[in-house]
Design a protein around this nucleic acid. Structure first.
Length: 424
RNA sequence: GGAGAGGUGGCUGAGUGGUCGAAAGCGCUCCCCUGCUAAGGGAGUGUACCUUUACGGGUACCGAGGGUUCGAAUCCCUUCCUCUCCGCCA
């Protein structure tokens, strides 16, 4: 969401930004609505001011027992046109808000122009690809052979794109979550939060999944939505807040289930745990000042990378090009982990700086001490990491010739003595 | 689910149709006084938008959205939320 005043002052900047995403110039329409709206607002305000003055005079006259009929008649006359103007103002401001809420964030200058995934920039490649003296299997074969990953039972009760983990694999998922959370909380200053999974539309509007992407969400009969990411409740923690500058940055982390309808991805990643309707994710969210957000994105990305490093997983860091950048994102780094079974890199984390884009939507502001004016905060979100996909990565990278899985060393404290996951 | 009560500024809490953006207290900021901590005195202290070179002026907002009225924090309707009791329940 953007400040209409900023658009008014520098329309070229915005049109150029949107052009980089392949969008047409938006400001002519916006400026036209805005111009009409402000003209009518001024007109309305003049009438309101006169009405207020007259009403006060009526009050005073009546208090003194004087006759006020002529004043009342004057206001009645004045008010003849007001409802019409009021309605126009209401319609125009709703229209403007609607238009603004559907416009993508402007990409950072550092983001490369591009059409899609294929144009993303490779920033760095970390870790050595593991070598096997046998043909590495994919995670679903490994999991099913271990007898602890069941897609059929899951399909029976829930349909496609669900999984059931049992035994050591269920424990491994829990271990991964706990390992990640402990790291964020104990070493990197994140506050752990336990969040609602069901939220109302306004929360999703704040983080900008709504109004444009409703089809990607699950909705309940009580008009709640299931969160597609922990970003939603974590970022909404500062909705309508005016924070003291010295409290920033705020850093939150949460483990949550995430729910996605995967509308439009029929046929993609149909096998396995890569793309499910429900998955676990450890999310990081930072609320910062405008000056801090650039560095905070690097910091957050580094923390997500640290999880992969400690797990001994090879990965690469991609900076998304304009064509692949999410709606709310100003700049995004994707972390892609190496999956030897699949023989490719797959996204396991996505860290984004949204600038003040979300903050404007949810009115999250801060004030420097002594300053009178408030400013919008910046918000960032990143996976640290997607737990389900991390489990996939561990299985494929730590598989042995006999189909067993060696537990990565950092997870041992969480595995209750289990060093190797074997068939039940 | 049933029955009630209530949502006011950073906080507590007045205010049931008229000069209320809102008393008072607390907190906070600045100043004064007091030979350092304490106490006291004075001034200021919501958000957003429009307008103005500036000083300033205007509008809206008392959970949210409608309505009544010359005039609404106050009356009416809808809705969300909170609390109490009962029921149910992890």
């Amino acid at each position: 969401m953007f400040d209409m005043k900023a658009i008014r002052e520098n329309p070229d900047f915005f049109d150029k930004g949107w052009a980089r995403r392949g969008m047409e110039a938006q400001t002519p329409v916006l400026l036209e609505i805005d111009g009409k709206l402000r003209a009518l607002q001024s007109e309305l305000q003049i009438s309101q001011a006169r009405r207020n003055d007259a009403s006060k005079a009526i009050g005073m006259a009546k208090a003194k027992g004087q006759d006020a009929d002529s004043l009342i008649a004057e206001v009645a006359e004045l008010k003849k046109n007001m409802p019409e103007i009021e309605e126009k103002v209401r319609n125009l401001s709703e229209d403007l808000k609607h238009q603004l809420s559907r416009l993508d964030n402007i990409p950072d200058a550092a983001v490369k122009d591009g059409g899609g995934e294929e144009d993303n920039e490779e920033i760095r490649i970390i870790g050595e690809l593991p070598s096997f003296d046998f043909k590495p299997k994919q995670h679903f074969d490994l999991g099913e052979d271990l007898g602890q990953m069941d897609f059929e039972k899951a399909a029976q009760m829930s349909g496609a794109r669900f999984v059931i983990l049992t035994g050591q694999l269920a424990r491994l998922e829990r271990a991964l979550s706990a390992f990640m959370l402990d790291m964020h909380v104990n070493e990197f200053g994140y506050e752990e939060v336990s969040v609602p999974i069901l939220v109302r539309s306004q929360a999703l509007y704040g983080t900008s999944q709504l109004p444009k992407f409703e089809e990607d969400l699950f909705k309940t009969t009580s008009d709640h939505y299931l969160i597609p990411t922990g970003e939603v409740p974590l970022t909404n923690l500062v909705r309508d807040e005016i924070l003291a500058e010295d409290k920033l940055p705020l850093r939150f982390t949460a483990l949550s289930s995430c729910y996605r309808s995967e509308a439009g991805s029929a046929g993609r990643d149909t096998r396995g745990m890569i793309r499910l309707h429900q998955f676990q994710k450890v999310e990081m969210v930072s609320i910062t000042t405008p000056e801090q957000s650039k560095d905070e994105l690097e910091r957050m990305t580094a923390i997500a990378e640290e999880v992969l490093k400690r797990l001994g997983l090879a990965y690469r860091v991609m900076r998304l090009c304009t064509g692949d950048l999410g709606f709310a994102a100003h700049m995004t780094y994707d972390l892609e982990v190496w999956l030897p079974g699949q023989g490719s890199y797959r996204e396991i984390s996505s860290c984004s700086n949204t600038g003040d884009f979300q903050a404007r939507r949810m009115k999250s502001r801060f004030r420097a001490s002594g300053e009178k004016k408030t400013k919008f905060t910046h918000s960032l979100n990143g996976s640290g990491l997607a737990v389900g996909r991390t489990l996939v990565a561990v299985l494929e990278n730590y598989q042995n010739a006999d189909g067993s899985i060696t537990v990565p060393e950092v997870l041992l404290p969480y595995m209750g003595g289990v060093k190797v996951i074997v068939k039940k």
